Amino acid sequence: MIKRHHIATLAAALGMAAALVGPALAADNAVDTSKRIKVAMVPKLIGLSVFKANEQGAREQAKKLNIDFLYTGPVTASAQGQVDVFNSLIARRFDVITTTANNPTQLAPTLRRAMKKGIKVVSYDSDVSPDARDFFIQNTSYPAFGKALVESVAKYTGADAKIAILSSTKDATIQNEWINALKAYMAKTYPKMQIVTTEYGESSPSKSLRAGLDIIQAHPDVTGIIAPDGAAEVGAAAAVQKLGKTGKIFVTGASDPDAIRQYVKSGIIKASPLWDEVKEGALVMYVARLAHNGALKPNDHFTAPDLGSYDVKNRVIIFSKPLIFTADNIDQYKF
């Protein structure tokens, strides 16, 4: 028989253990979710399919982490539009702002002001100035993605092809990083390949279509268009289709599978690199919770349940290796 004082001792020990562990830890016993926090996700603009996929993953993860989640942003790819949103979030005392930047420097003063007020800032996809955020979730390594973009057209255009670039905006951080990386890879691996023009579609499907049409009509010798933006890739592919250039001009870029599926199956896009945007959105929320809790160091390592293990190096987290969509695998992905 267990004596009464033994029961009391056991109960006290269990109570002490519970106090040490905390009242509300996540299933992996690593994240304290006892306090409900407000986290905003601010994309470059509302409506673009890749950012909707981020939102889907973020919203699902927020429920698991006791996060009051808000998805909000400008209706066009505007740095000032993002600044206006940030000012509203600061006034409403949000705990964490997560964002993918239209401009690395124009957003910085407002985000630094948010940080001074105790708001954590997590950038993802396209970075802001490093002193204007706590952590940055980088989609892939830039050299790896630059290589993937070039190789996605080189096999079909040949090593001495004339290539056009159709990007989002002139000052978009991540697109410029990718363009620099692809140029470096192209110069080393395909020195006879030539970039004849770089145009911008402002992350708008209609403007990207017009830009794609202009490229093809102004440069009839172009056989490949690299469009490292979700709307730009769709616009470029639609332009190829509209002008009857299927099989003559090959497109690649950075768009979600739902948006490009028809063009992959028609052969306009043979290969297109990206990553799992839904899972990336989930990781953004996980890092937002860790950042708010003060549980993440500038150089660190952590494991996010169902997402993977990640290294933090100088406050930067690499999310994934490039995921290449082709006609053989694209139907496995729905986002």
Rank of each mutant, 00 (worst) to 15 (best):
S206D: 12
A77E: 15
P23K: 15
G73I: 00
E280L: 13
Y200C: 10
L65S: 05
T169Y: 03
G212F: 04
F136W: 05
Q106L: 14
Q262N: 07
I137C: 01
M115A: 00
V128L: 02
L48S: 12
S208K: 10
M41H: 11
K38V: 01
K35D: 08
N139G: 05
I179K: 07
A77G: 14
P220V: 03
V312I: 15
S152L: 11
I119S: 01
A101C: 09
F69P: 06
K334M: 03
V122E: 01
V83Y: 03
A327E: 04
F325V: 09
Q332K: 13
I179M: 03
R36W: 03
A161L: 10
R36I: 04
Y71E: 04
N314E: 15
A239W: 11
L89G: 06
K207L: 13
G201I: 02
N293W: 00
F69Y: 12
A236I: 05
N54T: 06
Y156D: 14
V39R: 01
A40K: 03
L111F: 06
S34V: 00
E233G: 07
S49L: 12
A12T: 14
T100C: 07
N329H: 06
M41L: 15
A231L: 03
Q138P: 00
V42W: 07
Q82K: 10
L111N: 04
I2Q: 12
